[in-house]
Design a protein around this nucleic acid. Structure first.
Lengths: 371, 371
DNA sequence: TCAATAAGCTAATCCGTATTAGCTAAGGTG
DNA sequence: CACCTTAGCTAATACGGATTAGCTTATTGA
């Protein structure tokens, strides 16, 4: 099984030195002079041997390898949040292709749990069951998975890396940042004293705009339903809602944290309390908004009750809310990262917030005449 | 920004050689003897300096890079066939993570068209429009995209590669195979004299089984609706259908190729002709089966007409057909590839066919009493 | 007592590419 | 003719860690 050809092989074939091959193939001829005939000979030999540069070596010799990493803390191809992250990945891929970058998916700690012994790993299958499997390379997988830090460090084989996910493992990320490794988070981040570059979404403004619309339609008795989980994207939305509520002098008591199962009861109570509009947070799983939409099925919307979602629920284009520019999020993140890679000058971290597009929808109406 | 410490620094600090440091830190002490005191000194020094192994160097020094390529001829994150390829990718990622492999996504020629000049590329945006953009790295992108072969050769940066897509670019694949590069196709392949390793689906058997079920339910007047497009997965299904039809001594004329728009008319005519059951191919886009399900909306199914799909149409779990083990397809492909990578012994190409799970569904019934 | 072991460590290379510092031969200059 | 260019190329080395082939000293065995 012939080894992959290297520059030395081309050099031998073309009767030149490895240096010459490197110069010609990389196009780095600054100040160097090489005859056109040699150039052609080398290129021909490279073509014939099917030469492909080794990215690892390229990288070690401290150049670029045109690979950008994508590190997802769970799974790059999520099964449980079908449809939410996906458009972001599409955007990433598009822009990466456009910029001539390949994507390296670092399979984080998602698929694997700690191993029992050298030869066994517990793998969590997608349906939630845990299965025990033995594989040829479990050992390596376990060693790697043993520790988040190590997994994150691996990203350094790429020129830079996109990070993705709700939590920020501060220690390793700090380490990466400190070593000057280019990285960009997807989603707003305020950890590490704002030193993390990110491309996020302006949920504050978009959420405030939704509440403003309700207020303009005459609503004063509004409830905001949010998940119990704490993520920055959740608190940003809440901030937007509260800001809009405050400037409209609404009651500050509109925020309600609830689990999916409680939504039915809440809606009933709110109706009795004279609530005329409900705003619900859209999370990555989309279950909370789904629960609300289910709960209001017996009510005329927007005749009796106005409903708005802080985002866009799956399969419900008619609901008023806003569209998160997810594809653009991915695209932009790649661009910011590549900028960072190519500029290489130390400067302050780029932090970008993208605007959402309002969705008019048909679930916000004027306040119903009191019963 | 102080440079990260390397083994040499630890060696200096502990008063030993770099070799010793490597031995101790990697734990590869097979046959080597090192005193416990030295060991402790080195570990302490490493800890103190905050040593972290450089993954790039590690990989250069040990031939494998634990990256497997995924080459999709169009887009790794397809927008138009939402949901079909996705589970396969999920399976690939799961198994890759389990085996400690990272994934390198090679985006074939999908995202890019030929460039106009050195600095401009036409990028096809996802909604089908073509946009012109200028980017820092267009040149590289164009150079790469210029030619399929070059793109495919790049897959060699990984230890092996998974291929994905309807057509096989024989020349470059042949070249890869010839050079001993480990690769596995997803989907059955018969090109290149069967030298292509693959993990596919046994559509022949699964399709025959569906027809058998109809026959068992008493149907004799059956039509098989397939796409006009020719892919191996299509012809395999047709072979299965024909085989089952033949052994049941049905008319050979049951195969009908049609575009989505013609389905409505066909169904009407078939009903007049006394057809009692329709089988439709499920393609990656799923539009043909969708068209059929739409066309039979006015008909009682299975009361007046039995319907079966050779696959599983999206959002229609009630339809009789079979489930393609897509996740398993991805998983298995990774396993076969990693086997190939680690065994490295030349042997005949592994070709695997996975079985489908029948879906009983509720759209196959007994033949309706003739009107 | 002299060779054979073994214990504990290191020098030298290698992995594949990039880069810096020259080296050689041809041609031009004064 | 000695001296300098300049075009065209190469030797050497860096990058950081893995690995192979030894090289010292003690310790045994006969």
């Amino acid at each position: 099984m012939a080894r992959a050809p290297r520059q030395a092989d081309i050099a031998a074939a073309a009767g030149v030195s490895q240096t010459t091959v490197s110069l010609i193939l990389s196009g780095n001829t600054d100040g160097m002079r090489l005859s056109e005939s040699t150039r052609q000979r080398v290129l021909k030999a490279a073509e014939k041997l099917g030469y492909v540069p080794d990215p690892v070596a390229t990288r070690l010799a401290s150049a670029r390898n045109h690979m950008i990493g994508v590190y997802t803390f769970a799974s790059a191809f999520p099964t449980d949040v079908d449809g939410f992250y996906y458009p972001i990945l599409v955007g990433i891929e598009e822009e990466a292709a456009a910029l001539g970058q390949d994507l390296v998916l670092f399979t984080g700690t998602g698929g694997l749990e700690a191993g029992l012994d050298d030869k066994t790993a517990i793998r969590r299958t997608a349906d939630g069951k845990a299965a025990i499997r033995r594989t040829a390379d479990d050992k390596a997988a376990i060693r790697r998975t043993a520790d988040d830090k190590a997994a994150i460090r691996r990203t350094r084989i790429a020129d830079g890396c996109l990070f993705f996910g709700r939590h920020v493992p501060e220690e390793p990320i700090d380490w990466l940042l400190g070593s000057g490794f280019p990285l960009v988070y997807i989603g707003r981040r305020d950890e590490l004293d704002g030193r993390i570059p990110f491309v996020g979404v302006d949920y504050v403004a978009a959420s405030a705009a939704v509440v403003d619309r309700l207020v303009s339609a005459g609503h004063r008795e509004i409830r905001y339903l949010r998940s119990v989980d704490d993520a920055l994207s959740s608190s940003d939305r809440e901030r937007g809602v509260l800001a809009a509520a405050k400037s409209a002098r609404l009651s500050e008591r509109l925020v309600v944290r609830a689990a999916d199962s409680e939504v039915g009861g809440l809606v009933e109570r709110w109706r009795e309390e004279g609530v005329t509009a409900v705003v619900v947070e859209e999370t990555d799983t989309g279950t909370l908004s789904a629960a609300l939409l289910e709960a209001v099925k017996g009510v005329r919307v927007p005749g009796e009750l106005s409903v708005a979602v802080l985002g866009q629920p799956k399969d419900h284009p008619e609901v008023s809310g806003f569209e998160v520019p997810r594809r653009e999020l991915g695209r932009r993140a790649v661009r910011v990262l590549v900028d960072q890679i190519t500029s290489s000058g130390a400067r302050r971290p780029e932090q970008v917030l993208l605007d959402c597009t309002p969705i008019t929808g048909s679930t916000i109406g004027p306040v119903a005449p009191s019963a």
